[in-house]
């Protein structure tokens, strides 16, 4: 039996718990899933709670600080019948965010990190702080209106503006993620290269506006520093970017047709070189793959 602990990490409302719900439902019975649950958990109340919400197209209850759960599942990889004991601490977004803003963590969190076999890092494409610069705005204005400099009136009004104080929680999302990952790597006993799956959640929302979007290209475009950080530290990270639609359907736009979609046909996964784009267990398979 292989024992593997991996982490679901990411900011608040980045899709971690929805993924966990979908993973459970697929591993517990989807024919196309590459992983299958070996035996039913002794206490599946938490997973049942997630499942009920997911199946009824209601928002999966978000994990908040103080309500974090750890899920342990005995699963079988169908391709070689290898058995794994997967432990998945479902960390709250607040907990993860505090790494950046509070700059300390508990010994318990350190223990979770030490020896972790990998992690899935979640980002929600519609919940990103980009950190747009005023210079970029001016350049865009100049491009649009062929007038690069602000008017005299605008310059005068600047003198009367009191800037907002620096708020560490509002810096660009990618910077918060990079520093949190740096801190984890600097302080924890991890295998190198550390397997890190970057999950771009609500991938269907990206495809709705860019039908040919690819997860890796999306990361390079929206979080370029994170992409270059991971790429240029190849000896530290073995990483892969996935686009995952774990809900599969926009709950705000439900129709009788979408509601009748069978559960095991709801999810979609996008990434380079994957076998089945309908198998939401793919990122976990990647984490526990053979060398």
């Amino acid at each position: 039996m292989n024992t593997t602990r991996f982490l679901l990490m990411g900011p608040a409302e980045s899709g971690k718990t929805s993924f966990l719900a979908a993973f459970w439902i697929y591993a517990n019975g989807a024919e196309q899933a590459g992983l299958t649950v070996k035996c039913h958990p002794q206490d599946s109340s938490y997973l049942d709670e997630l499942q009920q919400a997911w199946l009824s197209f209601t928002k999966v209850p978000r994990t908040s600080a103080g309500t974090e759960r750890s899920v342990e599942l005995e699963i079988i990889r169908k391709t070689d019948r290898a058995t794994f004991n997967l432990t998945i601490p479902d960390l709250s977004g607040e907990t993860f965010g505090e790494i950046w803003s509070h700059r300390h963590w508990t010994p318990e969190f350190q223990t979770l990190l030490d020896g972790a076999g990998g992690a899935l890092l979640f980002v929600h494409p519609e919940k990103i702080e980009d950190g747009e610069t005023l210079q970029d705005v001016h350049e865009l204005q100049a491009l649009l209106h062929s007038e690069g400099s602000p008017s005299k009136q605008e310059v005068q009004s600047q003198e009367n503006v009191i800037p907002e104080p620096f708020d560490i929680t509002k810096v660009p999302t990618q910077i918060q993620l990079i520093d949190s990952i740096q801190l984890i790597v600097e302080t924890s006993k991890l295998n190198h290269p550390f397997r890190l799956g970057v999950i771009v959640s609500a991938w269907d929302s990206v495809l709705a506006t860019q039908s040919s979007a690819k997860p890796e290209s999306w990361l390079k475009s929206r979080m370029p520093a994170l992409a270059t950080y991971l790429t240029s530290n190849a000896s530290t990270f073995d990483f892969k970017v996935f686009g995952v639609s774990a809900q599969g359907i926009d709950y705000a736009k439900l129709t009788s047709t979408t509601e009748s979609t069978p559960p095991h046909e709801r999810c979609r996964v996008a990434a380079t070189d994957i076998l089945d784009p309908t198998d939401v267990t793919t990122p976990v398979q990647w984490l526990i793959r053979k060398e």
Binding site: E68, P89, T95, T106, P107, L112
Partner: peptide
């Protein structure tokens, strides 16, 4: 297989507890 217990806040806010890293 599924821990029914919740995990207490793993990082915690300020002020830092003496045991925090």
């Amino acid at each position: 297989l599924l821990s029914p217990a919740t995990v207490p806040s793993l990082i915690g806010g300020k002020p830092t507890a003496p045991t925090d890293i």
